[in-house]
Nucleic acid binder design. Structure first.
Lengths: 234, 234
DNA sequence: TACCGAGCCTAACGATCGTTAGCCAGTCCC
DNA sequence: GGGACTGGCTAACGATCGTTAGGCTCGGTA
């Protein structure tokens, strides 16, 4: 492979780690992709503008052609993460028919799918909110609140229809939410992993000792069963 | 209250956020306590040595009378967090009798208790491992591995005794581990919280919209029931 | 009494941080 | 053809970073 081809591959090494960036300018997209990799690994304050510029093959000053500040980039990452995640779960619920159990199962499956497919985005958008300014943090908090509303409605309807048995949904939802979220930290795909594809998963995922790697499908099914048990599904 | 009393209270504002620091020199202990508060809030790279020194009422250079480097302080925090957590869970299992279900229940309860009682330590010791050097990271990884061994043994014994039904324990353990770990991020006590006590919990815990705050006891019981369901307890 | 180390201090080192000013090569539209 | 816009560049700003040198003041100990 030529040096130039190597350079190009290095610059695009993070392609595919972010959903919903197809319409963006290529320079901005590359910065976002480099950022989600670096921030998930080292945290917001552990990543400098010069790091991102270097990963993208440009100078630090060029960063500011795309973002007004470093914090604004983090905000865009968080916005992207929460919006795409919410859309993913919402569409799954809406396409699941009228049975609350199937709606819950679809929601859990979509939740896991997103966290296992975009783990670096999940980690960045959930662990680095402290670095947002007050206004941006409030916007993200509103998004989080909205995302919870629909799932709460599914559970409450399931209760009144008699297919769930959890009079107080908050604790079971916290448990299910927690176990689904953590998938982003440990998941690594079982199939077709070359070095480039593995870079889309957190480095720590390699150190969680497990007997094997699992397919996304298997994790989705298994965790959905756990969730239905927790919600006391009939 | 006098100014001097105010100063003293500010310096000791983080007292009680760390277990197992009774024998340490007061200056070192204060630095560790200030560090766990700041690191859980802003991340390792978001906290400077001068920040910690300022919170402790000393100069930055005095930091190095207690720690060889900033990374070494993080290592001591991670060591403390993993050791105390492991001891807590281990003792609970050993004191639970011979029934695997009761051993599992005790382990989950102890796990939750630790995460809800020392949430800032839990967050720091689990989210900031990336900032450790290779040698220290390997030591912590060994500790994590050892901690998993005992619980795995409990589950496997429960399987062979016929009281659990989970032929492959890793996925259920990942689910239960995830939901218990996340308690550290959202838990806030329901009773007797003045401003000083609340500072022992992550700031974000206030933003997770919940209908009420729960007692530790209630979370422990509820989550233990979830865990037993997940492991297919007879 | 003399010493010694612990624990604090002031001052400063070089490196790196986020950000800005000012400039330049293309590309598009009128 | 000319002007505006886009997206890159070099160079530099002041602030802050982790860390060190060197000195002071104690309490304990030989």
């Amino acid at each position: 492979m030529t040096d130039k081809a190597n350079d190009r591959k290095a610059l695009e090494g993070a392609a595919g780690v972010l959903p919903g960036v197809e319409g963006l300018a290529i320079g901005k997209r590359r910065l976002l992709e480099a950022a989600v990799v670096a921030v998930a690994e080292r945290g917001y304050h552990g990543v400098s503008v010069r790091d991102l510029a270097s990963d993208t093959g440009v100078q630090a000053a060029s960063f500011y052609a795309h973002f007004g500040s470093k914090e604004e980039l983090l905000y865009e990452l968080c916005l992207l993460g929460h919006r795409e995640h919410h859309r993913c779960v919402r569409d799954a619920i809406l396409g699941a028919g009228a049975d609350a159990r199937e709606q819950l199962r679809a929601a859990i499956r979509a939740n896991i799918w997103f966290h296992a497919t975009y783990p670096l985005l999940t980690i960045s958008a959930n662990s680095e909110l402290h670095a947002l300014n007050a206004e941006h943090l409030a916007t993200i908090a509103d998004l989080r609140h909205d995302a919870g509303t629909l799932l709460t409605a599914v559970v409450e309807r399931g209760n009144s229809e008699g297919v769930f048995d959890c009079p107080e949904p908050w604790l079971p939802m916290s448990a299910v939410g927690g176990m689904c979220l953590r998938v982003a930290w440990w998941f690594r795909p079982a199939v077709a992993v070359d070095e480039g594809t593995l870079s889309a998963y957190p480095r720590q995922a390699a150190t969680w000792l497990r007997p094997e790697d699992y397919t996304i499908e298997r994790v989705m099914d298994t965790y959905a069963d756990y969730a239905l048990k927790i919600f006391g599904a009939a």
